[in-house]
Nucleic acid binder design. Sequence first.
DNA 1: AATCGACTTGGGCGATCGACCAAACACTAG
DNA 2: CTAGTGTTTGGTCGATCGCCCAAGTCGATT
Lengths: 214, 214
Amino acid sequence: MTARTSADRGRAVRARLLAAARELVSEIGWNAVSTRNLAERAGVHAGLVHYHFESLPALLRQAATEAMRTTLDESATWLSRADDPADGVEALLNDLDRYAADDPASLLFVEAYLAATRDPVLRAEIAGLMLGLRHDLATALARAGHPAPEATAVVVLATFDGFMLHKGLDPELSAATIAPVLRRLAEAGAGVGSESAPPADVGPDPNEPKGEQR
Amino acid sequence: MTARTSADRGRAVRARLLAAARELVSEIGWNAVSTRNLAERAGVHAGLVHYHFESLPALLRQAATEAMRTTLDESATWLSRADDPADGVEALLNDLDRYAADDPASLLFVEAYLAATRDPVLRAEIAGLMLGLRHDLATALARAGHPAPEATAVVVLATFDGFMLHKGLDPELSAATIAPVLRRLAEAGAGVGSESAPPADVGPDPNEPKGEQR
DNA sequence: AATCGACTTGGGCGATCGACCAAACACTAG
DNA sequence: CTAGTGTTTGGTCGATCGCCCAAGTCGATT
């Protein structure tokens, strides 16, 4: 139907397995994904998992980093286009609403963060992406004259993942609930107290230096 | 040494198992805790797990809810004593520093929230405790004249758990980084935009009504 | 038609899992 | 000393796990 050569069919299988991994991680948790229920979800023979991927953890790592990379690419694009102070946060709020809406993927990032805590390989990949996004957000805030861009970026991103977590406990939560508060945080207006964080200094991007984009 | 009667020894075993569960959930994850590695950590025979507890999930549920209940009791006490507007958040920041400090337990709540998403029984228990804390915080903020107590409480609590999550990826994060931003959020001063949330209305406590305290 | 490489299949390996059980143990009350 | 209660032990059950492999299928190349 869609595939003609064997290589094409192999590519399709890999894509189906990665998609099934994204779904299952959100639904039943990172550690509950097994070769067999993963293959069943993908509509594929269980033996194919270890033919196309080095191991089950390697498959999950690839699924998580790919999903995160595509999501963050969109966010980064929006962030770079944001001129208005709060536009950066607004762009991310857009993301939040999109992910909170379709439950199937809403917990993928939280699961990935937790798994990364215990898997050094995954952690290196995930942490790089996360710090890159944080840097982009902090830069956007600094460009808008925000007095504490780094600390605010940390809080905004932490709020996003925490929100996903709490939404599992309280389904009535919606992005609209927290949006006004986050918007206020992003406003360049009021200071944040001079105890910490010099006015505006974001530091070098931990990722950009390398020519690895796409 | 410590135990004399068999009932005393049984109580001690239960306590050791629950303590071991708290440790292991943080270290290796909720789903990775097994009867055998749990018993080994507790220094106890594996068969005792199913003698003292109905099942492994039941043990983990009890460990998580007990840990959460004791923590939230302290927070609630501090919150009720807070007169100053930002004192409530200050009290919670105290908690945050305490938990971020000793890594062994820092991920327990995050793991419990995630597990609660997929376990209706655990979810009922955990969600009740979480909503209770949120209500206490919102009440404290409203008492201080905060314009958007509920939304702010949601954001502050989400930030806490998100912070724990991100700290696993970026160990340089400390509570001091986000404290100024959260303090600013808790200030009664600036409005939050009138788009949502009527000035100050917190609603009934979802827990207190029942005479179940302690 | 013969060959080749990529992919797929079904089966099986040892290990670990949650749960259960009968027997042994420890201690108290009568 | 006996009976009774609560705890502990060692072992076992069926199920599932990640991973591996020999044989088979299928389209592309020659």
